[in-house]
Amino acid sequence: MKMLLYKQKKNQNVKGNRLLISINVLGSAGPIRFIVSEEQLVADVIDTALKSYAREGRLPILGSDLHHFQLYCPSAGPDALSPWDTIGSHGARNFTLCKKPQAEKVGEDGKAASRPAIHRKASGSWKSWINKSLNMKIYSH
């Protein structure tokens, strides 16, 4: 009897239709699938996706801060979905989760701080390479 009451209460909390959605994570092997209410906010869906991703032990490790991610819908165009939109408002069930692009840090002078260039450590100059090449002795039989 208690189980029946619990199931009824659980179903009463669900607003609107439920959808099985599929979220592709860039760099991951396959999509994450779970059921959501179509009235659920995009921010909540991102949070649920990150938790499911971590619980499954998927790689690469993403973290759990939903503010570092954006959800895209192919049918909504190239812009990310607003976190305050409902997930069912786009009529889609397939989405892509991406990390937000990192903004460049601005220095005190107002200019963008540039990252130090990574240089390959050279074993010598090109002149020394030529000298070594010319000084090689080729022996004939």
Rank of each mutant, 00 (worst) to 15 (best):
M1F: 00
K2P: 05
K2M: 07
L5D: 14
Y6P: 00
K7V: 12
Q8S: 07
K10L: 12
N13T: 12
N13G: 01
G16M: 06
N17V: 03
R18G: 02
L19D: 03
L19C: 01
I21N: 04
I23H: 02
I23A: 07
N24C: 09
N24A: 11
N24K: 14
G27L: 03
P31T: 02
I32L: 11
F34W: 02
F34P: 08
I35R: 07
S37T: 00
S37N: 08
E38G: 04
V45R: 05
D47R: 14
T48Q: 09
T48S: 04
A49V: 01
L50F: 07
K51V: 15
Y53P: 03
A54G: 03
R55S: 12
R55V: 07
R55F: 10
L59E: 04
P60I: 07
P60F: 02
I61K: 10
I61W: 00
G63C: 00
G63E: 01
S64W: 02
D65L: 01
H67N: 10
H68F: 05
H68C: 11
Q70W: 01
L71W: 03
C73L: 01
S75P: 02
S75I: 09
G77W: 04
P78N: 14
L81S: 06
W84H: 13
G88S: 04
H90N: 10
G91C: 06
G91K: 05
A92T: 06
N94C: 09
N94I: 08
F95E: 04
L97W: 05
K105I: 12
G107H: 04
D109T: 02
K111Q: 11
K111S: 10
A113I: 15
A113W: 10
P116D: 15
P116R: 15
P116S: 11
I118Q: 14
A122Q: 13
G124Y: 01
S125M: 04
W126C: 08
W126M: 10
K127R: 14
S128K: 11
S133W: 03
S133C: 09
N135A: 15
M136G: 08
I138R: 13
S140P: 04
